[in-house]
Computed example of a mutant assay.
Amino acid sequence: MSDNSQVTKPSPSDEATLLPPVDVIEDASGITLYADMPGVPKDKLHLQVEADTLTIEGGIDLEMPGGIEASHAEVSLSRYRRVFTLSKELDPNKVSAEFRNGVLKLSIPKAEHAQPRKVEVRVS
């Protein structure tokens, strides 16, 4: 899997976006990706897998109560976006996702042809 996010790509609405920090863990069965997306409600989280491209997007709810304005804001963008290219070893049809406490967890198993297999040795 390669990360295409070195350059922030515009979202479909041409907004500038934040790059969510991502951890990728690989084991024999596939990869698990953790993306930190604080402030994103589940209904504004969008995942898309098209061919070998995985896109993660999420809108942030940063509403200020009762007309109050921030005197200092370090998060001025309201959208996360990250794009990855999936390797041919991964099965894009079997991606599973969980979202809890602002952390998105994606599990992407290896394709059957890339799974480790045991080879039986015959004695003759």
Rank of each mutant, 00 (worst) to 15 (best):
A35C: 01
P10L: 12
G102F: 11
E69Y: 14
V83T: 11
P41L: 01
T8H: 07
S76W: 04
A35I: 00
R100A: 14
R79S: 12
P12F: 01
N4P: 02
E74T: 11
A70Q: 14
A35E: 02
A114C: 11
H113E: 11
M1I: 09
N93M: 09
A28E: 14
P12D: 04
L47N: 06
V22Q: 09
N101M: 15
G30Y: 06
A35P: 02
R100G: 10
G59D: 11
S107T: 15
T17E: 08
K105L: 14
T53P: 00
S96Q: 15
K110A: 02
P41A: 04
A114S: 15
S87I: 00
D27H: 06
Q6H: 12
G30L: 06
G30M: 08
N4T: 03
D91Q: 08
F84W: 05
R82A: 15
T53I: 08
V24C: 02
K9N: 10
V22T: 12
K110F: 00
P116G: 05
P65A: 14
E69F: 14
E89M: 02
E112P: 00
G67M: 06
I68S: 12
V22M: 09
K94I: 10
Q6Y: 11
L45P: 04
K105S: 15
R79A: 09
L45G: 04
V121M: 05
E57G: 12
S2W: 01
T8E: 11
E69L: 15
E112Y: 01
L86K: 06
K110W: 03
S11W: 03
V49S: 05
P92C: 08
T8L: 10
V49G: 04
V103F: 13
K94V: 09
S71L: 10
F84M: 08
Y34C: 03
P116C: 02
A28T: 10
S5L: 05
L104D: 13
R79C: 09
K105W: 11
D52C: 00
A70T: 14
V7L: 07
E57M: 14
V119N: 05
V24E: 01
S107E: 15
V49P: 02
S87D: 00
I68R: 11
I25S: 05
L19R: 03
V121T: 02
G102M: 10
F99Y: 15
P20L: 12
Y34Q: 00
E63C: 06
T55A: 05
G59A: 08
V22P: 07
A35F: 03
S87K: 00
V40W: 06
V121E: 04
P21V: 05
R79F: 10
L104E: 13
S87P: 01
D43S: 09
T53C: 00
S29V: 02
E15I: 04
H46W: 00
M1C: 03
M1Y: 05
E98K: 15
